[in-house]
Computed example of a mutant assay.
Amino acid sequence: MTLSVPSARAVDLRVEPVDDVLDRVERSLQVRVDRDTVIRKRRSVGGRTDRGTWVRVERRSFQRIASQGGNGPETAAVLRGVVMPRWRAGLTWRDEHEPVMWRADETDFVTGKPVGQAALVIEDPRLPDEWWTGLNASLDVLATQPTPRVATPDTDSITQGLVDATIRPVFPEVPNLVIDEWTPAHGDLTWANVMGPEFCIIDWEDWGTAPRGLDAATLWGNALAVPALADRVWDERRPDLESRSGRLMALFICAKIVGPYAHEADPRLWPAREKATRLVGELQSF
């Protein structure tokens, strides 16, 4: 029997009032959040504290918690050899009026800035070689540490069914979409979630098992507006991206860009169409 989980209303924390939420976090964690440093995203809010740490607060629906849980940053704290902010403390509470949970995590403050202010980049960030070394070392070691969690890119649990439903309507000519390799992944490795110029990965709420190559394909797809950067990602993560699963993940990302929600102003659109043609040909003969 499948239990029904109530749905929560869609909320954008970039415009939703959050002062009461931050007040509660401050009281519980005994910190003060500098309101001048607060960064608001669609489903999370973060800011620097008076003890030199960072607090990130996320609103998560019961439906998402039922499928994955709500403690991604805490569970990621046990990962070894991955460059990320050190986790210090967490706080969770149930909303009094809606079927959602609020989760606050306090971590070390990371200097530097996200490489991209949004998921994609439209200018070459000119990352140093040391940055790429850090990326490769972190993704390689992450893939060796199994977890029962399932990654949730774009808040959806990544299953074989999701891969089929994303790729098949856009590229029906690919004969076989079965994923043959699954490994732990960050799950939301956009350019907004990697720091520079010193490498670090932030925002671990979506991490879990995923098809091999998901993280590399996410970075690559969101760099397509900067061909040299996209090529660098492909070269650095070639073992992942040129595996059969990795090619499918690259096509998975292309399908999201060129599929039914494609936007003609998206600078990734035409490069993604070109790359998708190549990937389809490769997968037809793989």
Rank of each mutant, 00 (worst) to 15 (best):
S4M: 11
P6I: 12
P6S: 14
S7G: 09
A8V: 00
V11K: 00
L13H: 00
E16G: 05
R24F: 07
L29Y: 01
V33L: 07
V33M: 01
V38H: 00
K41N: 10
R43G: 03
S44R: 13
D50E: 11
V57H: 01
E58L: 05
S61D: 00
Q63I: 09
G69N: 03
E74V: 15
R80Y: 04
G81I: 10
M84W: 01
R88W: 01
R88I: 11
G90H: 08
W93L: 15
W93N: 13
D95P: 11
R103L: 03
R103Q: 11
D105L: 01
D105H: 03
T107E: 08
G112W: 01
G116I: 00
A118R: 09
A119W: 06
L120D: 15
L120T: 12
V121D: 05
D124W: 04
P128E: 06
E130M: 05
T133C: 06
N136K: 06
A137Q: 08
V141S: 11
L142R: 12
A143C: 03
P146L: 09
T152G: 02
P153L: 09
T155H: 14
S157C: 15
I158L: 15
I158N: 04
T159V: 09
T159W: 02
Q160P: 13
L162R: 08
A165M: 07
I167K: 06
R168Q: 14
F171T: 08
P172T: 13
E173G: 14
N176S: 15
L177T: 13
L177W: 05
E181L: 13
T183L: 10
P184Q: 03
D188P: 05
G196E: 02
G196N: 03
P197M: 02
F199H: 01
I202D: 00
I202T: 04
D203N: 09
E205G: 04
E205K: 01
T209Q: 09
P211Y: 12
T218F: 01
T218L: 03
L219C: 13
L219G: 11
W220H: 13
G221N: 05
V226T: 14
V226W: 02
P227F: 03
A228T: 12
A228D: 06
D231F: 05
V233Q: 04
D235M: 04
R237E: 10
P239M: 07
D240K: 03
D240Q: 13
L241N: 07
R244E: 12
S245I: 10
G246N: 12
A250Q: 14
A250R: 14
I253M: 11
C254W: 01
V258N: 04
G259E: 06
A262T: 08
A265R: 12
P267A: 14
T277P: 03
R278C: 09
E282I: 08
L283H: 13
Q284I: 06
S285A: 15
S285Y: 11
F286P: 08
